[in-house]
Design a protein around this nucleic acid. Structure first.
Length: 428
RNA sequence: AGAGGGAUGGCAGAGUGGUCGAUUGCGGCGGUCUUGAAAACCGUUGGCUGUAAAAGGUCCGGGGGUUCGAAUCCCUCUCCCUCUGCCA
């Protein structure tokens, strides 16, 4: 959520930056907010004045009654009746105005950082860098959804989509044998690496309440993307970002606590309503998948350095996995609602001949912190912190790329770094 | 799930209708003393809103009510604890 006082002082800049991400009603919305804000402040002033008078009278009534001066007490009491009526009216109008202001304010996305490229769609994202050579596979190379059926020759499909359909439905694959072991190897590898980089591991709940969903920005408008449990109004987490960042909801940290660095492995659940179509075969898009997520909370002046650090960290993982990758800086139109700047990491999946997003690393600046009321003390004042997070990494597409890129006539070779974690070198 | 008891400032814990945003202790911060530290002593120490700074307003789990006045009384919701039951 944008900060109202910033909006008050920087109307033009806010509108310009919102337009940068093709938020078309920017000007209209900002002006509505500012109008509500002016009204709100006037009402607040009126209400405060009335209540101050009312409070003074109440004290006086107490005094008079103690003195036994019934008459004076009664006269003061008569005056409060009128004040009370006025206060009620101001109060109701104030509440209505605040609600109206808030309803518009929460629909405004975050302001894009100055370095965010202009652009409306994914086509206009900026390729920051590309690393590694793209494998040149023979024509007979298979996409991973065919490869998984072919291996393991001994135990059957290492990722079984049909079986998952039987148990649940499309998008819930079953990992078996070496497929399951590779997943576990990846999780352990990612967690160990994060720990070495100073991230403290968290095992959060996989089910969250409405307040948590609001804190990180999934609610109110993305509730259709989460699985909902109506009996208790809970949601299955779409990412570990939600429970981990919400650990710091309503928290005031000391400077000495910063930066906060957390890592968590969780399954993630996404309804992906409306996003099925071409290019979603196999592991490319799932309703349930595993992900290791890194989260940081830091001082505003450090957050862009932290973002770069997180980007370097994730790139390090991809290099260790020997996967060709590229880094994108998302354009204004493609960025998530809550982000100020996002880097996407894509690996090259050689049989599909496609780049697959395996990580998205974002700086939310104060957008989430404002909703979370996540602050710290600096020179005696409380100030909003900055939050960041990134996948490190999402498993299915990493697995897809490993399977496709490393296929040989003798089987699929695991990257060296994973072999000790998996306990085998090759799927055959 | 049933019965009972709770929810107060970073923590502990008073406060049962009126100068209570809240006694006190611990912790934190600043100071005196000390070569330094500890101890002792003195001072200070909530959030939000508002202002140039004040003043003022608001908040004692959430919401609603009674009253001139509510942390305190009433209703309701949520959560926690104890006992009983069930269960990985």
């Amino acid at each position: 959520m944008l900060q109202l006082n910033y909006l008050r002082d920087h109307r033009e800049a806010v509108i310009q930056r919102l337009k940068h991400r093709f938020f078309l009603t920017a000007e209209e919305d900002v002006d509505r907010i500012l109008a509500f804000d002016r009204k709100r402040r006037q009402l607040q002033l009126d209400l405060d004045t009335t209540q101050a008078r009312s409070n003074a009278l109440s004290k006086e009534i107490g005094q008079r009654m103690k003195e036994g001066n019934q008459e004076a007490a009664e006269s003061a009491r008569r005056e409060t009746a009128e004040l009370k009526q006025r206060a009620r009216e101001w109060g109701e109008e104030l509440a209505t105005t605040e609600k109206a202001l808030y309803d518009v304010l929460v629909t405004l996305p975050n302001l894009p950082h100055a370095s965010v490229p202009a652009g409306r769609t994914a086509e206009e994202n900026e390729v920051v860098l590309q690393h590694g050579t793209l494998p040149d596979l023979p024509e007979t190379a298979l996409p991973h959804w065919d490869l998984v059926k072919q291996y393991d020759r001994k135990t059957g499909p290492i990722v079984d989509f049909e079986l998952g359909t039987k148990i649940t439905g499309a998008g819930f694959p079953v990992y078996k044998g070496k497929g399951a072991r590779i997943q576990r190897a990846l999780v352990n590898f990612f967690l160990d690496e994060a720990q070495r980089a100073g991230y403290v591991e968290i095992q959060p709940p996989l089910v969250i309440n409405r307040d948590s969903g609001f804190g990180t920005g999934q609610l109110p408008d993305k509730d259709g993307q989460m699985y909902h449990i109506p009996e208790e109004d809970f949601f299955l987490i779409p990412t570990a970002e939600v429970p981990i960042t919400n650990l710091y909801r309503d928290v005031i940290l000391a400077s000495a606590d910063l930066p906060v660095k957390h890592v968590g492995y969780t399954p993630c659940f996404r309804r992906e309503a409306g996003s099925w179509g071409a290019h979603v075969r196999g592991l490319n898009r799932l309703h349930q998948f595993d992900k290791v997520e890194i989260v940081q909370v830091c001082q505003p002046e450090h957050s862009y350095a932290v973002l770069e650090e997180m980007s370097q960290y994730v790139q390090g993982l991809l290099r260790k996995l020997e996967l060709p990758y590229r880094v994108l800086r998302l354009c204004g139109g493609d960025m998530g609602f809550t982000a100020a700047l996002t880097y996407d990491m894509e690996v090259y999946s050689a049989a599909q001949k496609r780049w697959l997003e395996v990580s998205s690393i974002s700086n939310f600046e104060t957008y989430q912190a404002n909703r979370l009321k996540l602050r710290y003390k600096v020179e005696g004042k409380t100030q909003l912190l900055h939050t960041l997070n990134g996948s490190a990494l999402a498993l299915p597409r990493v697995l897809a790329a490993i399977l496709e890129n490393n296929q040989t006539s003798e089987g699929i070779l695991l990257p060296k770094i994973l072999q000790p974690y998996a306990g085998f070198e090759k799927i055959d």
